[in-house]
């Protein structure tokens, strides 16, 4: 007579460690961060060139800083969900998840307000160019997010193993 408990994959340590599972959203978030990084480089270069044409070195710095800050601050959301999903096996997953996601959310806004106060009166910043770069960066980041989600295929039920791509 076989013992059902000893053959249960969930109770076998080596099988449980091999089948480390993450939520099925993980590949999509990873792709969003990756594609967002590539888009950030492209938009930063474009806005820097436009800034250089408009206001020389000051415009270049403003264009680069504006677009980089937009992509970084909007990318933090996906990155924080991505990181917190690694703790999905933990008993404190819900606490860790919302602590990281909403904690990073409030932190980035505080940082951006402080950055705005510090940068506003700097002589090497063109405020109008900075603002336009932020708008362009935000719109480009949202476009990337929409593109990634529209192209994603999430299984209706269940989670994926760690190495499976969607």
């Amino acid at each position: 007579m076989t013992d059902p408990i000893s053959h249960d994959p969930a109770t076998t340590p080596e099988v449980a460690s091999e089948e480390r599972r993450v939520p099925s959203s993980q590949p999509i978030l990873l792709r969003a961060v990756t594609v967002g990084g590539i888009a950030a480089v492209v938009v930063t270069v474009v806005m820097s060139v436009i800034g250089w044409c408009v206001d020389g070195g000051t415009g270049l710095a403003s264009g680069a800083l504006g677009s980089v800050s937009a992509f970084v601050f909007l990318g933090v959301t996906a990155a924080s969900i991505l990181v917190s999903n690694f703790f999905v096996q933990s008993d404190f997953y819900v606490v860790i998840f919302f602590g990281l996601v909403l904690g990073s959310w409030i932190l980035k806004f505080v940082l951006f307000i402080v950055a705005a106060l510090l940068l506003k009166d700097q002589p090497w910043i063109n405020p109008t160019m900075f603002f336009i770069s932020v708008i362009v960066g935000v719109l480009a980041s949202l476009l990337v997010d929409v593109f990634v989600v529209a192209k994603s295929r999430v299984p209706y039920v269940g989670d994926l193993s760690k190495d499976r791509a969607v």
Binding site: P23, S24, S25, Q26, I28, L29, A32, G66, A70, F73, L74, T77, A78, I81, N85, W105, F109, F112, I113, A116, K120, P127, T128, F130, F131, V134, I135, V138, S141, L142, D145, V146, V149, S152, V154, P155, Y156, D159, L160
Partner: peptide, 26 residues
């Protein structure tokens, strides 16, 4: 997993408005 993706895209769009609002300071 499916709901996480929807939550993320929802947060991205709503926080973009707040982000632009702060940037109007410039």
């Amino acid at each position: 997993g499916k709901l996480q993706v929807l939550m993320w895209i929802g947060i991205a769009f709503t926080e973009a408005l707040a982000f632009i609002g702060i940037a109007t300071y410039f």
